[in-house]
């Protein structure tokens, strides 16, 4: 780990960007490997978050560096050929950050409801 990088608190990670939040939510369902995460992001966002290899691994690298995600284990490539795949899973700190973001958004949702902004939409 790079010792010169400052460790951020939970609050300092907020608000999460849409791609970060969705990636963390997907990883909260269980560890997965990069390509599967790439597909799931596109599918679960309805095509709104369509990452290519460069952007996906930049996202993953930043989540790993910030301690939100960690590589868990390597599994054999299902095709039987090629290098084994690395699985990424949510860390407990990542779970805390995700929960905090969810609470933040719930608060916003409550405000929107109190203002009846969601009615009729």
């Amino acid at each position: 780990m790079d010792l010169t990088r400052k460790t951020l608190s939970v609050e300092e990670h907020l608000p999460l960007k849409p791609a970060q939040q969705l990636a963390l939510l997907l990883l909260a369902e269980g560890p997965t490997y990069g390509v599967a995460l790439m597909e799931a992001l596109e599918e679960r966002s309805g095509g709104a978050i369509r990452l290519n290899a460069g952007s996906l691994y930049r996202l993953l690298a930043s989540l790993v560096d910030d301690g939100l995600v960690e590589p868990t284990e390597e599994v054999a490539n299902p095709s039987g050929a090629g290098a084994p795949r690395k699985l990424y899973g949510l860390t407990s700190f990542g779970r805390e950050v995700l929960a905090a973001e969810a609470r933040r958004q719930a608060g916003l949702l409550d405000m929107a409801r109190a203002l009846r902004l969601l009615e009729g939409s």
Binding site: G34, M38, E39, A53, Y57, A61, R85
Partner: peptide, 20 residues
């Protein structure tokens, strides 16, 4: 450092995109 950690996986993802 990034290449060592993610290089192979990135290339696998690129291949996946093209195959898909």
């Amino acid at each position: 450092a990034h290449r060592r950690a993610y290089g192979q996986e990135m290339w696998a993802a690129v291949r996946h995109r093209f195959e898909a």
